[in-house]
Design a protein around this nucleic acid. Structure first.
Lengths: 330, 330
DNA sequence: CTGTTAGCGCCTTCAT
DNA sequence: ATGAAGGCGCTAACAG
């Protein structure tokens, strides 16, 4: 590929001059500038950003690590975060963990090797050690969605406990008396908080908390929701509603109910967190807490960019508002 | 950040030796190797891949450019492509064009500056000039989903015309006599081909092709589907089915029909291309041609990796099989 | 206004 | 088995 040396040679100037033209420095005679620019075009010169990064110590690259891009919730986060980053001339590198800790760890390592300027992380890791290499190498980062226990670092998310209370209260108001919970590992902050909210809501209404109706699995994926539901319904007491802590789990729950010939919501109502496709998915089905995914992405990236550019290293926890959307499942 | 110089100094060896240890070269005394390794760990050394890329001319980075990551079809492509790339130690950089030509162009420029090793492109651009900088800089690439007219380059997709014929024939078999088409710009190969299939299917069954029932818009997005439908239904002849060329358009079509008080499928049936969420989205609604998105991503990345690693520069066009999924909308 | 020089962090001959 | 030296492409003082 053509380098500034090639251009300099052809133009009969020094590489410094070429560099100046490329970077729009003043102090270059118009005539010289014109000649160099012409050559730049003619040769199809493309600067090597790796080389300049070596010198400038900036890559203009921000990494985003998410659990699963095929979940619309995360896709929205990525898209809005990327948009925000692009508007400030940053490129986004992306990593999909599939809720796998080892993959997450590897991504962070690779991204540090690439000398990213910052990282947006929706962690599967529950231990603070995951962010240690970032701190050690002084790389700004912002957590999104899930928090890490023990970390006082910047974070953008929602009030999971409060929203869980809201949706469970909605079920109670609809006359449900036996509300079960199906959720994912409490190691993940959001699921821990949603469970807390569930319990508080029941207690607040004087409803009994039944052990058999509280099923906590591992990852927030379809198969887990399916299995937990089947397991739960083996017990004698059938709930009249299930609060499911996430959209993918909810698919599994619904499939299990179908297999067992329960009708939703006639026999058992379902309410969950998160949506599926665009707001206008057809037909909307699950009553759910809709998180402001796009806004989360934008706000988190904004915060990160401030850290990178403004050097604002203050810890900041931002909680955004969610929406309760009532649908046919309750 | 700590460099090989720091390590060399502390270990009392030359940077060459450190480099050798890092890259697992032989010809390093076990004792020396151990000492250096220990230092590497202790100092938290992380290699600078930009620096080594400068020398090696390889970045181990592959870019993927897609129209819209919140569309499950593209999300699946990205996830599977990334997976495949990772397994060969390549990192994926990602760009979302939002169906915007200028953004696509900018991405390509930025990615070349980053000296990516290869590119996977689902283009919004319809002109062959979009790939010119790639060719000029000798960067391997593979087109996915959409083809570019006049390009004989490697491509992975489906037989759009054939699949369109299949789904329209299905409608015909269901007794539909007045099948309309709502599609996006014919500049995009897939929409051009789907329209061709639509026309062929009608002709094949001796059905009349009505001008008023053939609506071609711009981008394959919800708003376009909505407007075209409203526009079409102003005309006197109401179709008994609509073949919609893409999932997002279909949402718009459906919304418009709802607004106009038409029932689906009683009054008007809908069949489209692409799905919405996971295979088990609840409840499945649109009868549609389901493209093997994940496989497309895997196969395309595989092809690209071969070009990069094996230097296999042969043009290859790969067409994968789709599935016709019958649902409640027909 | 323009050029020389010295790195940025790493790899790769070529000697030793 | 190890080190010295040159260079990847570019930027940034420092001199003219």
């Amino acid at each position: 590929m053509v380098t500034i040396y090639d251009i300099a040679k052809k133009a009969g100037v020094s590489i410094t001059t070429v560099s100046r033209v490329i970077n729009n420095h003043p102090y270059v005679k118009d005539k010289t500038r014109a000649k160099v620019k012409k050559l730049l075009k003619a040769t199809g010169y493309v600067p090597n950003s790796n080389a300049s990064s070596l010198v400038s110590k900036k890559t203009n690259t921000i990494a985003v690590i998410l659990p699963d891009i095929t979940n619309i919730f995360f896709a929205k986060i990525l898209r809005s975060a990327e948009e925000r980053a692009n508007s400030k001339n940053f490129t986004v590198i992306y990593g999909n963990t599939n809720e796998d800790f080892q993959r997450e760890k590897n991504y962070i390592k690779t991204f540090i090797e690439k000398r990213i300027d910052g990282l947006l992380l929706d962690p599967i890791a529950t231990d603070i050690s995951i962010i240690q290499p970032l701190e050690q190498n002084n790389i700004p980062f912002v957590l999104i969605d899930r928090e890490i226990k023990g970390s006082q670092k910047s974070h953008v998310g929602i009030h999971n406990e409060k929203e869980a209370i809201r949706i469970v209260n909605y079920l109670i108001k609809k006359g449900k008396k036996n509300i079960a919970l199906i959720s994912a590992s409490e190691e993940l902050s959001v699921y821990k908080d949603r469970k807390k909210g569930y319990i508080k809501a029941l207690k607040g209404s004087g409803l009994e908390l039944k052990k058999d109706h509280l099923k906590i699995g591992t990852k927030p994926i379809k198969a887990v929701g399916y299995n937990l539901t089947k397991e739960m319904l083996k017990s004698s007491a059938v709930p009249d509603a299930i609060f499911v802590a996430n959209n993918f789990l909810a698919i599994g729950v619904y499939n299990a109910l179908q297999d067992l010939d329960f009708k939703v919501p006639a026999d058992i109502a379902i309410a969950c967190f998160d949506d599926f496709a665009t707001e206008s998915i057809i037909p909307p089905f699950f009553t759910s807490i809709i998180q402001p995914a796009s806004k989360m992405g934008t706000v988190a990236m904004e915060l990160l960019l401030n850290k990178i550019e403004g050097g604002d290293s203050n810890r900041k926890k931002i909680y955004l508002k969610s929406k309760l959307s009532v649908r046919r499942s309750t």
